[in-house]
């Protein structure tokens, strides 16, 4: 508002008209323009910092670094695993309970809720007969990397979904029902699990 009382305070009507609609020539509030220009300046600085100078680290770089660190930890954990460790884990109640929980959330769907196996899908796991290797490390490896049957992966490889720790826990759960040195190797055709719950 002008302080000059002589001046007509009424705003000027702009000469143009669209569909008979005219507009006044009025100023935007300065504070409003300030927010507009600051956001433009911010966008420019943001672009500079993120995409030109690289001052702000790219999210993908940070993500890849963290994934690599995670993989390194997993690999180190696998390296430290051996028969003795897995058997020891299988006698630890906490580890076995953790493994059972993992089993109940994933593995049960093929091997049955009671480990009895499902015909044509998953072997029985609560007996002492093992088709794909009769050692603790073999069981761990099968869960970790999966099994290829007739040229097709069976969807068991769990390293990515679970991570070493939980794969080891599931292994421990299965081993907890076994006796060390009493696991017997058999052929696929002799696997007796093709029963139902």
């Amino acid at each position: 508002m002008s302080d000059d009382p002589q001046r007509d305070p009424r705003p000027v009507i702009m000469p143009h008209a669209y569909d008979g609609i005219q507009e006044y020539d009025q100023s935007l509030p300065n504070w409003w323009l300030f927010t507009l220009f600051s956001s433009i300046a911010f966008a420019f600085l943001y672009w500079l910092a993120n995409f030109v100078t690289g001052t702000v680290a790219d999210d993908r770089v940070a993500l890849n670094a963290e994934l690599a660190a995670l993989e390194a930890r997993q690999l180190a954990a696998v390296k430290n695993l051996d028969e003795a460790t897995l058997w020891k884990m299988s006698r630890n109640a906490k580890t076995v309970a953790d493994g059972q929980a993992v089993y109940a959330s994933l593995c049960f769907s093929c091997h049955g809720p009671t480990l009895a196996g499902i015909k044509g899908v998953g072997f029985r796991l609560n007996d002492d007969l093992w088709v794909h290797g009769n050692t603790a490390m073999a069981v761990f490896g099968n869960i970790n990397e999966g099994i290829v049957f007739e040229g097709k992966p069976t969807g068991m490889a769990s390293q990515k979904a679970l991570g070493t720790e939980r794969v080891a826990a599931v292994t421990a759960y299965l081993l907890s029902l076994q006796k060390e040195g009493a696991m017997r190797a058999i052929n696929r055709k002799d696997e007796p699990s093709q029963s139902t719950p």
């Binding site: 508002m1 002008s2 009382p5 305070p9 009424r10 705003p11 009025q26 100023s27 935007l28």
Partner: peptide
């Protein structure tokens, strides 16, 4: 008060130069 009164066409608290009459 020498100031002209409020008018319908403009907002009293937005000056013609964009400043903020308080």
């Amino acid at each position: 008060m020498k100031r002209p009164g409020p008018i319908r066409e403009s907002v009293t608290t937005i000056g013609q130069d964009g400043t903020r009459p308080f």
